[in-house]
Design a protein around this nucleic acid. Sequence first.
DNA 1: TCATTAATCGCAC
DNA 2: GTGCGATTAATGA
Length: 247
Amino acid sequence: MVLNKNITSRKVIQNLTCASCDNSDCLIKRNLDHISSSYFIENKKTLKCKKGQQFIIEGAAVNGLFFVLKGKVKVFRTGINAKEQIVRFAKEGEIIGHRGFGTEEYYSIGAVALQDAVLCYFSKSDLQKALLENPKFGYDMMLFYANELNRSESKVKSISQMTVRERVIDTILYIHRKFGELNGFLNLPLSRKEYADYAGTSEEQVIRVFSSLKKEGLIIARVKKIGIANIQKLKNEISEHNFYLDS
DNA sequence: TCATTAATCGCAC
DNA sequence: GTGCGATTAATGA
């Protein structure tokens, strides 16, 4: 585990306001017109996170939530034998730590930046007020929760019913859907271990599946850069499970 | 360059 | 399918 390296010092930047932010994927930004309480926006903090830095620690007290302004993040849970289960990956505009909202007192997940990231942080009480005062905002938030729940439910199914090979393919397709491609490679470099942690298998299995997929000409793998050579064939392999619905 | 870290592969269970 | 350990490749100081 390489986790506990960089969990200190979160840098706070002051000069970023929601009004000047251009992140149209952000739930807050999208609802800025509906949010009347200005204190809510004023109290937000913007943090910079370096690559590999952990900004949510499992078991820490929940005081608010994070929105990803820039960068990519992985969210995970530590299981027995310190095994990491990656719950999801998040990109710009997504909420992190949302399950801690409401009645939960402690984070049940950890989160680390996969690349240099900028995060917006809102306190729980401010957010609560804003949600109560703005139905449209609350509704958007609810849609987000519904989506997350749906995805997490399909994930349970995939882990219990798919073979290792299918799960790895599913993971590749998930990354592809979510982060897209750049120069023919998935736009998110991940280690084999991270693929394994998401797919619920071991690093070795991922390597094995990758090399057979490579031989079959379905993917291209150059170290951390993974490219999809034949997306249709990959989709076909897991089509009977209907898993490419999730986000 | 050298040291560290990640990726592979073979092999036993 | 799983997991250890040796080997090799890649990356970073």
